[in-house]
C-alpha cells in the first residue's frame, strides 16, 4: 500500500485526467448522439441513412481499433491531433453511437399522440422534436444514459494505450518503476471505483428526481 500512498499526488492527477476525459467526451457524445437520434427519426431519408451507417459502423468496431485507426491511420491523410485530443475525439465518436441508440429508444417511448398533438398545433419537425418529444424522451432514459456514462469512465482507460496519462497509464508506469504491480493495480482500481460509484449514486438520485410520477 506504501506505493499508492507515496504516489498519492500522481494518482490524484491521473484521476483528474480520467475524469476530464470522461466528462468532456460524454458532453460531446451527448451532442453527437442527440443529433444522430434526431436524424434517425426524421422524415429526411438521406439523414436517416447517415445516422444508421454511422451507428452501425462505429458501434460494431472495437474501440481500440478505432483509436488505432485514428492515431496511426488517419495521420496518413493529414488528420493529426495531440494524443489527448485524439482520445477525446474517438471516445466521443464511439460513445455517441450508444447515446444515439439510447435517445432513439427514449423517443420511441414517447406516446405517438404527443407528436400528433404537436403536429396539429402546427409545430415543425424540429420544434416538435426539441420542444415536445426530446424533453420527455430524456426523462425516460436517464438510467441507460447513466450506464453509458459509467461505461465511458471504463472505456476512457483505453486512452492509456496512446500515452494519455490517465489512471491506467499511471498503473503501468508505476508497475515498471516500482515493481509492485499488485498494490499499484489495486490503487488504480480503487480510484476508478471512486469515480464510478458516486456517479452511479448521482445518476440514481437524478433518475428519481426526474421520474414521471403516475
Amino acid at each position: 500500500m506504501h506505493v499508492v500512498l507515496d504516489n498519492l499526488p500522481a494518482f490524484l492527477r491521473a484521476t483528474r485526467v480520467t475524469a476530464q476525459l470522461t466528462v468532456i467526451s460524454f458532453l460531446l457524445a451527448m451532442l453527437i448522439g442527440t443529433l444522430v437520434a434526431g436524424f434517425r427519426v426524421s422524415p429526411v431519408l438521406p439523414l436517416r441513412w447517415l445516422g444508421t451507417v454511422y451507428v452501425e459502423l462505429v458501434r460494431n468496431t472495437p474501440l481500440l481499433v478505432l483509436i488505432s485507426l485514428f492515431v496511426f491511420g488517419f495521420t496518413k491523410i493529414g488528420i493529426r491531433y495531440s494524443y489527448y485530443a485524439s482520445a477525446i475525439i474517438v471516445l466521443s465518436t464511439y460513445t455517441g453511437t450508444f447515446v444515439a441508440e439510447t435517445v432513439r429508444a427514449g423517443i420511441n417511448t414517447v406516446a405517438p399522440g404527443q407528436a400528433e398533438a404537436a403536429r396539429s398545433l402546427g409545430l415543425t419537425f424540429s420544434q416538435l422534436l426539441f420542444a415536445v418529444v426530446l424533453p420527455q424522451a430524456f426523462r425516460s432514459v436517464v438510467a441507460p444514459l447513466g450506464s453509458v456514462f459509467i461505461a465511458l469512465i471504463k472505456n476512457s482507460a483505453l486512452a492509456s494505450t496512446i500515452a494519455v496519462m490517465d489512471l491506467s497509464f499511471l498503473g503501468t508506469q508505476l508497475t515498471n518503476s516500482t515493481g509492485r504491480p499488485v498494490a499499484v493495480f489495486m490503487g488504480s482500481a480503487f480510484f476508478y471505483l471512486l469515480l464510478a460509484l458516486p456517479s452511479g449514486w448521482a445518476i440514481g438520485w437524478f433518475e428519481r428526481r426526474v421520474a414521471v410520477k403516475r
Binding site: N155, T161, F185
Partner: peptide, 10 residues
C-alpha cells in the same frame, strides 16, 4: 466497475 484493460494489464 473495473476497466477491462486494467484486468488485462494485471
Amino acid at each position: 466497475a473495473m476497466p477491462l484493460i486494467l484486468l488485462i494489464l494485471f
